[in-house]
Each structure stands twice: as structure tokens, then as C-alpha cells.
């Protein structure tokens, strides 16, 4: 399985260097250690899943990548450049889009204004306009509701706007924190189809998902977090076959 080794390092997409790399990252919330030596890589054009039980540190991992939380040890590299010392706004400008846990839309802005905020740091108006079209095309429902206040949308609609808002920054890496939370199964299926489509458009995706089966079926590779540490990782198919993962996350 020579291909597997290449996939494991995430360096198979031709660039030779992972788009995103975490090296031995520790995160402390006061005295609580949320992450312990977490290392992971995401290759260009990949979808990578992050699974784990509640409180394992998945959200913390994404927050650390996007600069909302600072690591106390270790480093984070974006295309080989260290970003863990930068502010969240700089990291966002470097191409990391984050659809945070719980959506966190600007409730008293309209849907259109929310999407517009996603493009806050962009100057190319024409590009922003075409990205509006793209988001509307991916989520026709969002287009329909563009004049409505984000806070008054249904949960699923809000999730679409949250992903759309992250897309508006034209990120190279998209961080999605439980996009399926609270959505009906049919909507989840559609949402994941859109995520795959976004990925095919060239955006690298790092995805947190409680539904391990769905996550691993969507992603090429996965990492399993347990109490702040990476317990296992590997190509999705391998993880799906692994007995521990099956027992702990697939309910088999």
C-alpha cells in the first residue's frame, strides 16, 4: 500500500507540502489541558475528518487553527508558514475560513449582509460578486432568504449561511465544525453533497462531525481525538474497518 503512506502524510496532491499542519500542539484553558501534543496534516484538495466524543477537543483544534485560541506549545503551519502567532484576522486573510460550532451568525444582519461580512477583508469586488453567485448557486435556499434576518432563519438555513459566509472569504482551507448539527437527515445528505462539491472546486476541507460514518464516508482520511490526543488516524476506509473505531464511534 504505497499510496496509503502518501495519503497519510497528506502530501499526495502534487504540492509536496501539506496545506495545513499541526505539530505537537498543546492548548490550555486556564489549568484545563484541552489538547495534548496534537499533530495532524491536511493535504491540498483533501477532505479530512476529525472525530471524537464530546469534549475530546475537536472544536478547540479548529479554534486553535483559526487563531481564536492560542496554543501553549507546538506550531501550526499554513503552506509551510507558521501562523500560530498571528491574530485571528490575519489567519482569516491568509485563507482559513471557519464555520464555527453553533453557527454564530450575525443575527441582526440580513443573510446578504452576513455573507458580505464573510468577504470583509477582500478588495476584489468582481470576485466577491461572483462568489455571491456561487454561494447562491450552492444554496438556492440562502438566495431566497437573502433579505431576511439571519437570526430568524431555521437551524438548517443558518448552517448554510454559516458555510456560505466562510466560503465568501474564498478560503484555501475551510474548517467546518459540526455542520450537520440539528439538521434533518435528508438535509444533512444534501449538505454533505455540497461540501463535496465545494471541495471539488479546489477548497481543502477539515471537518468535525459527530456522525462518524458520514464523516468518514465523505473524507479521505480521518483523525480520531480522545481526551485531547490523537488516538488513531488513517485513510477513512481503514478507520471504518478498525474495531476500536467501530466500537466507539460507529456503534457496532
Amino acid at each position: 500500500m504505497t499510496g496509503t503512506a502518501a495519503v497519510l502524510t497528506g502530501a499526495d496532491a502534487g504540492s509536496g507540502m501539506p496545506v495545513l499542519e499541526l505539530r505537537e500542539v498543546d492548548v490550555l484553558y486556564g489549568r484545563v489541558q484541552a489538547l495534548r501534543g496534537v499533530s495532524l496534516t491536511v493535504g491540498a484538495g483533501e477532505i479530512v475528518a476529525l472525530i471524537g466524543s464530546n469534549g475530546a477537543g475537536k472544536t478547540t483544534t479548529l479554534r486553535t487553527i483559526s487563531g481564536l485560541v492560542r496554543p501553549s506549545k507546538g506550531s501550526i503551519l499554513l503552506r509551510g508558514q507558521p501562523i500560530h502567532t498571528l491574530g485571528a484576522e490575519k489567519i482569516a486573510r491568509l485563507g482559513v475560513g471557519h464555520a464555527p460550532e453553533g453557527r454564530r451568525l450575525f443575527g441582526r444582519m440580513t443573510v446578504r449582509e452576513n455573507l458580505d461580512m464573510g468577504a470583509y477583508s477582500r478588495k476584489d469586488r468582481a470576485g466577491v460578486r461572483s462568489d455571491f453567485e456561487r454561494v447562491y448557486e450552492l444554496f438556492p435556499r440562502v438566495k431566497e432568504r437573502s433579505g431576511q434576518l439571519a437570526g430568524s432563519l431555521s437551524g438548517g438555513e443558518q448552517q448554510m449561511v454559516a458555510i456560505g459566509r466562510a466560503m465568501m472569504a474564498r478560503p484555501t482551507v475551510l474548517l467546518l465544525d459540526e455542520p450537520s448539527l440539528g439538521l434533518a437527515p435528508i438535509v444533512v445528505e444534501n449538505l454533505f453533497a455540497v461540501i463535496r462539491e465545494i471541495n471539488q472546486g479546489g477548497t481543502t476541507v477539515l471537518l468535525i462531525e459527530q456522525n462518524a460514518l458520514l464523516a468518514l464516508n465523505t473524507a479521505r482520511r480521518g483523525y480520531v481525538l480522545e481526551v485531547g490526543e490523537v488516538a488513531t488516524s488513517g485513510p477513512s476506509q481503514e478507520l471504518l474497518r478498525s474495531p476500536e473505531v467501530q466500537r466507539a464511534y460507529l456503534g457496532m
Partner: peptide, 17 residues
Amino acid sequence: VALREDEVAAAATGINT
């Protein structure tokens, strides 16, 4: 406005809070 609404989300969209 974004800052008033949600500081975390504002930072994540590239606003220097």
C-alpha cells in the same frame, strides 16, 4: 455591527477586533 453581534464570529471573518 459584527463586533456587537458576535465577537468570535467577527474575528473569524477577518475583523481586527
